[in-house]
Simulated assay, not measured.
Amino acid sequence: MAPSRVDRPAINRARKLRRAMTGGEKKLWSKLKEFRTAYGIHVRKQVPIGPYVADFAIHASRLIIEVDGERHEDVEQKAHDLKRDAWFAEAGYRTLRFSTGTLAEHFDGCIETIIKELGAIQ
């Protein structure tokens, strides 16, 4: 469940992550920030939500978009991702995950998936 107070450590992590975005995150952000003018959808990057920091969030649609690099193949990291996704779901968010490989090879398809998901929500 979403906390009623601000999680200061998550805010500090988000600030650091905004300055150190990965190549995949930067590429996706370059497109997602256009959603505001193209569709009237406000996307935020490296967003503190409760104790976690989502790569991207669209609060109005309760959608989180995560970019998973190679470290997300690790068993412990996968377990952590499942825990995060469950927490986000309990807080009312849906999570879309894209690997950096999928973003690199099928970028337009990833954008289409996001747009379809937004259409299904709204």
Score class of each variant (00 low, 15 high):
1 M>E: 12
1 M>D: 14
5 R>I: 11
7 D>N: 15
7 D>W: 12
7 D>M: 07
7 D>H: 15
10 A>D: 00
10 A>C: 07
11 I>S: 14
11 I>M: 13
12 N>K: 15
13 R>V: 01
13 R>K: 12
13 R>H: 01
13 R>A: 09
13 R>N: 09
15 R>N: 07
15 R>T: 10
16 K>W: 12
17 L>N: 12
19 R>F: 06
19 R>S: 10
19 R>I: 08
20 A>S: 13
21 M>I: 05
25 E>N: 02
26 K>F: 02
27 K>Y: 00
27 K>I: 12
31 K>E: 15
32 L>S: 10
34 E>L: 13
35 F>G: 01
35 F>R: 08
35 F>T: 01
36 R>F: 05
39 Y>N: 06
39 Y>C: 08
41 I>W: 05
41 I>Y: 06
42 H>V: 14
44 R>T: 09
44 R>G: 12
47 V>N: 04
47 V>K: 05
48 P>V: 05
49 I>N: 02
50 G>E: 00
53 V>F: 05
53 V>R: 01
53 V>H: 03
54 A>G: 00
54 A>Y: 00
54 A>I: 06
54 A>K: 01
56 F>V: 06
56 F>L: 02
57 A>M: 04
58 I>R: 08
60 A>T: 13
60 A>H: 10
61 S>H: 15
61 S>N: 10
64 I>N: 09
66 E>F: 09
66 E>H: 07
67 V>T: 07
67 V>R: 01
69 G>V: 09
71 R>N: 12
72 H>I: 07
72 H>M: 04
75 V>P: 15
77 Q>G: 06
77 Q>H: 11
78 K>H: 06
79 A>E: 10
79 A>N: 08
81 D>A: 04
82 L>C: 10
82 L>I: 10
83 K>W: 11
85 D>N: 00
85 D>P: 02
85 D>L: 07
88 F>A: 11
88 F>E: 00
89 A>N: 10
90 E>C: 14
91 A>P: 07
91 A>W: 03
94 R>W: 05
95 T>K: 03
95 T>G: 04
95 T>P: 08
96 L>M: 12
96 L>A: 03
99 S>T: 15
99 S>L: 06
100 T>W: 02
100 T>N: 08
101 G>P: 01
101 G>F: 11
101 G>M: 08
102 T>M: 15
102 T>F: 11
103 L>T: 04
103 L>R: 03
104 A>Q: 14
105 E>L: 13
105 E>P: 02
107 F>C: 01
107 F>S: 10
108 D>P: 05
110 C>Q: 06
111 I>V: 15
111 I>R: 01
111 I>F: 07
112 E>M: 12
114 I>Y: 02
117 E>W: 01
117 E>R: 14
118 L>A: 09
119 G>C: 04
120 A>K: 14
122 Q>E: 15
